[in-house]
Design a protein around this nucleic acid. Structure first.
Length: 417
DNA sequence: CACCGTCAAGTCGCA
DNA sequence: TGCGACTTGACGGTG
């Protein structure tokens, strides 16, 4: 079983994706952006390998305007060697990647042009995975599309348009239930007609259910039947509702207790779980650590090194509790650990606590800082106390110093997120 | 450096 | 008939 995250990282340097506005797109700009984004992708893959994350969704934005005539670069050729190198890393590390075109890729539209664009976009996504050289179990997940006041007609259109797709696209395309038009029963029906694997999304099913009396596990079992040997093991999407936002919005982090009860109820290992959550890789590592059988206290200590100043800033009392918890070197209290972290991060930051945490970070530079840096830091703290500057300014300042003095311990800290 | 309106694309609901 | 929401971060222009 693999657990992974989608598109972006949090707190990992040099992994961001860049784009530009259409009007500013030209050959030079696009080449620069693609090169930058591939470099970020490679850093993400390296990070995933280092952190034993074996499931990852590649952002559709990796090639800006990738399926638009505005971008007529033969990027698969120009950047061939970097694609191969990244693909090699993915394959040799046993990672499984995927892609997921967004809401604008609609294969079942009644408009010819919309369908043509969708086909082009699916070709683009396929080209990325093919250029990486990853196997057929690295999939492209698509929603069915619109309803247009006639669902059965819209479904028929999806099916006939699907049948016209290139074989290379068909090899990778799989379908998913969405949160307003096509529920899991609809998608299973379509999947069985065209022989395409179905991805179950638990939150979409919660918001747009076919039958509320059926459990998630019921549908997950149904979907399993749509996955063939060559497709790899079954994949699902898992997310939790953000309690502050409207139905279907992803939570900021995965609540570990809730996830663990879902996971334990699965009673299966032959399944990949793609998390959709705001804190991305943080939740992936959390869930991996809580479900792995071969981890030790060392893995929690690594996590603690990343979370500690963030926790200190939110809740000094939880900081003390967690340190106590990690004192028992033969234990592996992963879920207790993350419960305390979640608890700490749910608390509101006070000025006093944030200054305390900033001073802890400052301790790394105290002796090496120039007089100017020292004055600037202390001056900022004073101004912050009086409400004349923001915490963000202080953190930006400390981040620059962490980079300058190459404090790798701090560069990996979530304090700066 | 901080702020904020805007951004390729499609569909749907609502005024 | 036309506009905002959807959902999201980042671009890019401004102060």
């Amino acid at each position: 079983m693999n657990i992974g995250y989608a598109c972006l990282t949090v707190g990992v340097p040099d992994t961001d994706q860049k784009s530009c506005m259409l009007k500013n797109a030209n050959k030079e700009k696009l080449l620069e952006l693609i090169s930058y984004n591939l470099n970020s992708l490679e850093n993400i893959i390296d990070y995933n390998i280092k952190n034993k994350i074996k499931l990852f969704r590649i952002s559709s934005d990796i090639i800006p305007f990738g399926s638009s005539p505005v971008n007529n670069l033969e990027w698969w050729d120009i950047f061939d060697s970097q694609f191969s190198r990244i693909g090699h890393k993915i394959k040799t590390s046993g990672m499984r990647v995927s892609m997921h075109p967004g809401q604008y890729t609609v294969l079942n539209s009644p408009k010819k042009e919309v369908v043509e664009n969708a086909i082009e976009d699916l070709r683009y996504h396929t080209k990325i995975l093919d250029t990486l050289g990853v196997g057929e179990d690295n999939k492209i997940v698509l929603h069915i599309g619109g309803v247009y006041n006639d669902k059965s007609q819209a479904i028929r259109r999806f099916i006939s348009n699907y049948r016209e797709l290139d074989d290379s696209v068909k090899q990778r395309l799989i379908i998913e239930n969405d949160d307003k038009s096509y529920n899991i029963s609809d998608v299973l029906e379509i999947g069985s007609i065209i022989n395409v694997p179905v991805v179950f999304d638990n939150l979409h099913n919660q918001v747009n259910p076919f039958d509320k009396s059926k459990s998630d596990y019921y549908w997950i079992d149904k979907c399993k039947e749509t996955w063939r040997e060559k497709d790899g093991i079954q994949k699902i999407h898992y997310s939790q509702q953000n309690p502050l936002k409207k139905a279907g919005s992803h939570s900021s982090t995965i609540q570990i207790n809730k996830f663990m009860s879902f996971y334990e109820g699965l009673e299966r290992d032959d399944i990949d779980i793609m998390l959709e959550v705001k804190d991305k890789n943080l939740s992936a590592v959390k869930c991996i650590n809580c479900t792995s059988i071969d981890k030790s206290i060392k893995d929690l200590e690594i996590e603690w090194s990343r979370y500690k100043y963030m926790v200190l800033e939110n809740s000094p009392s939880d900081y003390v509790e967690i340190r106590k918890l990690l004192n028992e070197k033969d234990a592996y209290p992963a879920t207790e650990f993350y419960n305390l972290i979640e608890n700490a991060l749910s608390k509101e930051i006070t000025i006093g606590n944030s200054i305390n945490a900033a001073l802890h970070i400052w301790g790394y530079f105290k002796k090496k800082a120039t007089d100017r840096e020292k004055n600037s830091f202390l001056n900022n703290i004073e101004k912050y106390e009086q409400g004349q500057t923001s915490l963000k300014t202080i953190k930006n300042n400390l981040w620059k110093m962490a980079v300058k003095y190459n404090q790798s311990y701090l560069l990996d800290s979530y304090y700066f997120i």
